[in-house]
Design a protein around this nucleic acid. Sequence first.
DNA 1: ACCGGGAGTTGAAGCGCTTCAACAGATCTC
DNA 2: GAGATCTGTTGAAGCGCTTCAACTCCCGGT
Lengths: 344, 344
Amino acid sequence: MVTLAEVARHAGVSASTVSYVLSGKRTISTPTRERVERSIRELGYHPNAGARALASSKSNIIALMMPLRTDMYLPVMMEIAIAVATTAREHAHDVLLLTGQEGPEAARRVVGSGLADAMILMDVELEDQRLPLVRVTPRPAVLIGLPSDTTGLTCVDLDFAATGRRCVDHLAELGHREIAVVGEAAAVYERRTGFAERTVRGVRERAEELGTRVLHRPCDGSYESVAGTLARIFDERPGTTGIVVQNEAAIEPLLSLLRQQGRAVPEDVSVMAVCPEQVAAGTSVPLTSVAIPAQEMGRLAVELVMARADAGAGRDQAAVPPRIELLPPTLTVRGSTGPAPTPR
Amino acid sequence: MVTLAEVARHAGVSASTVSYVLSGKRTISTPTRERVERSIRELGYHPNAGARALASSKSNIIALMMPLRTDMYLPVMMEIAIAVATTAREHAHDVLLLTGQEGPEAARRVVGSGLADAMILMDVELEDQRLPLVRVTPRPAVLIGLPSDTTGLTCVDLDFAATGRRCVDHLAELGHREIAVVGEAAAVYERRTGFAERTVRGVRERAEELGTRVLHRPCDGSYESVAGTLARIFDERPGTTGIVVQNEAAIEPLLSLLRQQGRAVPEDVSVMAVCPEQVAAGTSVPLTSVAIPAQEMGRLAVELVMARADAGAGRDQAAVPPRIELLPPTLTVRGSTGPAPTPR
DNA sequence: ACCGGGAGTTGAAGCGCTTCAACAGATCTC
DNA sequence: GAGATCTGTTGAAGCGCTTCAACTCCCGGT
C-alpha cells in the first residue's frame, strides 16, 4: 500500500503538505498542488481510512439502522437505503448497514467505537428502544419516522395525517359519502409504528368535518386476508363507494377481487392508494395515489444529519436545531377514482 | 471517550494486557482477565475502530456492492442484504453498503483505503466491469451471481440451469407437452445478467430431451405487458398447458388474467414460478415453485468470504481455493400445477 | 531601510490500538 | 539442584494520518 509519506517523497514535499493538498484546509501554491496531485495519481495513492479516522476522529461513515420486519414493505425501505447511500457519497461519506438483530446495542457499539459519526434510524416505533441512546449520544442522528415524543429529535417523514386528509378530500369532492380504509397488517398497529395510525387519524378527522362515514380495517397482504377484509367491508357497509389502501401488498389482490365481484373501478368503486409512484402506475388499473416519497426521505435524512455533523464540527451544534420535517403529500389522479355512483 | 490506557490504569495492568484480554491472542490468567473485564464494563469502554484498523490493518468491515437496477426484483436483493449483514455480525464484521452510482471505482476506493477487508458483489453481469479489479485485488471477494468467465473467482448462486430443468421435469411428469416461459424484462437479457439466460437454457435442454415444446417470452412486470405476453403465447401456441414464470412482478397479473380468461389453474393451465417462498405461498393461488434462496445465498457468501479472509490472515490463501457454489433448486408443489388436461 | 503580516511550507507530536521481543517467576526434567 | 520450558505480563515501537506551532519568504506600508 502506498502511504502519504511516499507520495510526499515522490513529490519532493513534506507529509503535511500532501495532507493539506488532500484536505484543502490550508492554501497550497498551484505548482506544488499540481505536483502533489500528479504523484498521487502516478502512485495510485488512497489515504488509509483507519489512520484518517484515528487522527481526525471522524470516520466519514453514517450508520443506517433498519430493523427488518417481515410485515414492512421492503421495496420502500430499500429505496430509502439506496437514496441514503447515494446522497451520503455526495457528502464523501459511506453507509454502514445495521439490521435490527443486535437491538439498540448496535447503535451504542457503532457510535462508541467511533465507527460511524452519524446515524439514521428507520422503522421508528412510537416508543422506540433506541431513543434514549439517540438523546444521549453526542453524534447527530436523524429518524425516518415519528416517535410519540420528539423533543430534541430530528425526524423526517411523510405527513401521513395530511395524507389521510387529502385522500378523504379527494373522494369527498367526487361525491363519495362512505369510504373504507384497507390498512396495514394488524401487527403494524399493535407495534404502534406511528405512520399507519397517523393516516387513519387524518382520514377520520377530515371525514368527521365533511360528514363522510369511514370504516377502517387492518389487512395483511395475502390474497385470503384481502378477500376477507373486502367481504366484511361490503357486508357492514354495503354503500361503500370509496376505498383507500395503505398496504402495497394488498393492492393487486384487491383489484383482482373487485373485478371478480363485478364491481367496476372506478364506475362502481373508487380505489386510491398510499404507495410509491412506481407501484401506483404499474397496477392493472393505474391508481390514483398519494406517493410515498422514499427517495426524498432518504436524501433529506442525509442532508439533515450532515448539516448537524458539520455544525458540530464547526461552531455550536445549536446552530442547527432539531427539527421535524414532514413532507407534504402529493396526490396524483390516475384512472382508479371517479364520481360516486348515484345511489339507486 | 474512554481509551484502552484508561482501562489499563483502572484495572492496574498494562495496556498490552487489556489488548490481549480483548483479542484473546495470548493467555491471560483468570483473575487478571476478570479484573480487566470489570473495568471495561464499569468504564463503558468501546475500542476505537479507527485505531484498531490502523494498528491491525483490518477494518472488520465487508463491503456489499449492489448496483440497483430498477428492473431487478428488490425484495430478493434486500433479503440478501439483510442476510449478509446478519451473518457478518456473527463474524464480528459490519457491512458497508455500496450502490452502483460510483461504478467500479467504488470497489477500488474502498479496498484501496483499507475501509473494507472483503467484498461481496451482487447483481453480477456476464462481463462485469468489476471483475478485473476483483481479480487483481488481494482482498477476498465473493460474487453473488455468475459471470461468463469464473476462473479464479468465488461465486454463489442458485443453480438456475438445474432450476429450469427441474421445472420442465415437473410439468412433463404431469403430462404437459407444450409449455411457455414468462421471463424477466427484456432489459435483463440484453444486459446479459446470467441467471435469466441460464434458466431458459436449462428449460430448453431438458425440454429437448423429453420432447416438450417450449416458448420463451421476456416480460416486464406491468399488467399491460403481462397481458400482451399471455395473449401472444396462446396465439402462437394454443395448446400451451404449462407456464413457468420467472418474474415476481408478473405473477399476480398473470393469475388475474388467466382467471378473467376463464382458464382455471391448475385444471386448464398449470403455473409454476421461480421466486422466493414467501411470494409463492402468498399469491391468490399458492404456487408450485422453485425457491430463490436469498437468505442462504447471503449467508453463504459471507461464510465463503470470511473463510478466505481468515486463511489469508493465517497461512496461505491457497488453502481456501476459489470455488463456484451453486445451490441446488428445491421444488415445492403447491396448488397451481396439476395433470395436463386431456386434449379434446 | 525597517517592520508587520500574509502566504506557503514544514517538523513533530500525537490519535488509540496491536504486537513483538523480552522478562520474571513457576514448573518440569534428568 | 541446574538448566530447559511454560505461563503471564509488560514496555516500546510503530500503524498512516492530521494538525499545531513555528519558520521562511516576500510584499506593502511608513
